[in-house]
């Protein structure tokens, strides 16, 4: 791989890992700043139960922005989600302008509410397992998300979440 290619790979990894930190800290606007205006986001899972490739959630940049601004008006579980991710592969296109990446993902819930906060707060629960399937554009040595598909293995989601994964 060329020096430019290596630089692109590092830029992609940097953007993915930064996005995880921002999502962990619930800095939604800063996370969306890492995304192109045409960004498309989805959460999907294959269900062997119904033999169907399901979409649990999908939204574009504008929808995500509006949604994250609206969600404080909703009742929600206060337990933050914390991501553990490892970028497995980065494939940079020949022209060096776009790349795809696959990131292994485990999300834990750091309990604050739980069922009884007296007992549960401070505990971590495994929330879901999956992958980030990302497409990014690379400009001036920096990578921005064009598409993110959160591909879940988990289909038992209990209380679920209001927030992007």
């Amino acid at each position: 791989m060329s020096a430019n290619g290596n630089g692109a790979v590092e830029a992609v990894k940097d953007t993915i890992y930064r996005s995880c930190l921002l999502l962990d800290e619930e800095k939604w606007s800063d996370w969306l700043d890492l995304c192109d205006d045409g960004f498309q986001y989805s959460i999907k899972a294959w269900s062997p139960e119904i033999n169907y490739d399901m979409t649990y959630f999908s939204a574009d940049h504008k929808h995500l922005s509006t949604m994250t601004e609206q969600l404080p008006k909703h009742n929600t579980d206060h337990s933050p989600l914390k991501r553990h991710s490892t970028v497995y592969t980065v494939d940079v296109d020949k022209d060096g302008k776009t790349a795809t990446a696959i990131t292994s993902l485990v999300v834990y819930q750091n309990m604050l509410d739980g069922e009884t906060s007296h007992l549960d707060s401070g505990e971590n629960h495994l929330f879901l397992v999956g992958k980030y399937m990302d497409k990014l554009k690379i400009e001036n040595g920096q990578a921005k998300f064009l598409e993110r598909e959160v591909r879940l293995e988990t289909r038992r989601l209990d209380k679920g979440s209001h927030w992007p994964i």
Binding site: F57, H74, K159, G160
Partner: peptide, 13 residues
């Protein structure tokens, strides 16, 4: 009604 939708999470809480 999805697991990441507006209402279901609230009902389950």
């Amino acid at each position: 009604w999805g697991p990441f939708g507006r209402n279901l999470h609230e009902d389950l809480i």
